[in-house]
Amino acid sequence: MSAVLTPDRCVLILLAAGRSVRFGDLDKLQQDFLGKPLAFHVVTALEAMPFKARLAICSGSDLDFASRGYRVIHNDDPGDGMSGSVKLGVAAAREIGCDAVVIALADMPRVTATHIYRLLEAASGRDAVIASSNGVHPTPPAVFGADQFEALLTLEGEEGARAMVRAGRHVIAPEAELLDVDRPEDLERLRSLR
């Protein structure tokens, strides 16, 4: 039996523990974009969604996610790749109890609540794997139903959940909305889109 996933039965996991190696010596999440830190754009975009809980997986950033309603979980080994952060978030979400997790990246500042609602609407229940796509490549944000948690907890390395995401269902969003800031030139491209 399929069930509609609603935010109040989902845990939002915000991945903010990357090492920003391609960005140089600066913390990309703290870089100014339209008058606030880059990472707080997705936080603001999703703040009205009634998630059961919000988790921010962080490593060395000084950004105060706790003041924005997030339980902060420290990733002591960000070199373990995205999978280490995903596992920390999923383990905490499983303890809380939820039907699904929504995994978003702190370096994707143009993600909208409308798109997250579309991902949830596309989900068929606790076995769902729904990812975003620009029409060519699947990408976060993504929704994983609770029946996928065991598989997520076995992930290793930087590959993260890419294989699961590729095999899942995809919801198209404009490419500019899914812009992921990895390098200084990505931030400049983002600023030029205003």
Rank of each mutant, 00 (worst) to 15 (best):
R126K: 14
A48E: 15
K28Q: 11
S61K: 01
L15Q: 14
S2D: 06
S67T: 08
T154I: 06
V42W: 08
V86E: 01
G35Y: 05
L38Y: 07
L153E: 12
L119F: 09
A16I: 03
D80Q: 12
G125Y: 02
T6S: 13
H115V: 03
I116P: 07
L193E: 14
R68K: 14
A173D: 12
K28N: 12
F149H: 08
R54N: 02
F144D: 03
A56W: 11
V111L: 15
R189K: 13
R162P: 00
V4K: 13
A106M: 02
F23T: 08
F51Y: 12
S61M: 05
F65M: 08
Q148N: 13
A176H: 13
L178G: 09
A3R: 13
P140S: 03
N75I: 00
L26P: 00
P184Q: 07
A93I: 14
A161D: 15
V72N: 03
V42N: 00
D8E: 15
A113Q: 10
I103P: 11
A91R: 14
G135F: 12
S124I: 07
L15T: 05
I96A: 13
L63S: 05
V4C: 06
E185I: 11
R54Y: 05
V86Y: 05
A56Y: 10
M108Y: 08
M82D: 03
V21M: 08
M49Q: 07
A16P: 02
V143D: 03
F40K: 00
